[in-house]
């Protein structure tokens, strides 16, 4: 007889179950030896495949060839228009801090100001005006308070937790500050209507070094986003990715 839970086992092994569904399957696995053995066998195969599958790596010559062809393809005019995309690519492709060509002291100053907001928020007894981990509570709270609206991502499948949000002002414009938590670290996300002055602001590596914060900025759908926190660069990036994906 096939147990009703069998269809869930691949999902369990692949880490695709979350929340109550995950708890349910785990509880069942403790009670059902057949499913436990089945899950173990699936896990075993997955592990073996993983170990055996990382098999091919590029030769040094090929690596150099690729690096060369990337270099020769780059054209300066892109730097202006596709700076954010190129920056993302450069991080991934070249493992060099991407935003180095966008370092402006003015931009640094402005972003440092926002980073200060983040710090003073954390220091405050009431860091957020709307306290909720539910994006369906936080988002509507800003309605009527801001001249724009934004989307928040589903966080259930991520290590991030929404703590809440507050209204903030930056360069005489209202904006949203959202506070997220990952592990023991807190990350602020600032959202403002995009203006020419804002879109010029880009978080360079020197800013991160100076402030010991990791940051990310981008413009999407007429809104300017700034993510700042003392969490790891990959956490800041992952949260940024989630926010961007929410607007897709």
């Amino acid at each position: 007889m096939t147990c009703d839970w069998v269809p869930k086992l691949d999902l369990y092994v692949d880490g695709e179950l979350f929340g109550s569904e995950l708890t349910e399957v785990e509880t069942h696995l403790q009670a059902c030896p057949t499913c436990a053995a089945d899950a173990l066998s699936r896990l075993q195969l997955k592990r073996m495949t993983q170990a055996a599958g990382r098999r091919f790596s590029p030769s040094r010559e090929f690596r150099a060839r690729i690096a060369q062809s990337i270099k020769s393809e780059k054209r300066p005019r892109w730097a202006w228009r596709w700076a954010p995309a190129l920056a993302a690519a450069a991080v991934v492709l070249m493992l060099i801090p991407a935003a180095f060509w966008l370092q402006h002291s003015r931009s640094e100053q402005a972003l440092a100001e926002l980073a200060d907001f983040h710090v003073s928020t954390l220091a405050s007894a009431n860091p957020v005006d709307v306290v909720s981990s539910d994006r369906h509570t936080v988002k509507p709270w800003f309605q009527g308070k801001l001249p724009f609206t934004f989307n928040l991502p589903e966080l259930q499948t991520s290590p991030f937790r929404l703590i809440g949000g507050r209204l903030t002002y930056f360069q005489q414009s209202p904006g949203a500050q959202l506070l997220f938590e990952v592990g023991k670290h807190q990350i602020s996300v600032f959202i403002f209507q995009n203006r020419a002055e804002l879109s010029r602001l880009n978080s360079g590596s020197s800013l991160s070094r100076k402030l010991a914060f990791n940051t990310e900025t981008w413009v999407d759908g007429g809104l300017w986003y700034f993510v700042v926190g003392d969490a790891s660069p990959s956490d800041v990036h992952d949260l940024s990715e989630l926010l961007r994906s929410a607007n897709r």
């Binding site: 892109w78 596709w82 993302a88 690519a89 492709l93 990715e241 607007n247 897709r248």
Partner: peptide, 17 residues
């Protein structure tokens, strides 16, 4: 890689790189 470099225009920012 060449297609990716040429096609940045089609890469929607915010999607999974």
């Amino acid at each position: 890689y060449l297609k990716a470099l040429k096609g940045f225009a089609s890469f929607q920012q915010g999607t999974n790189f």
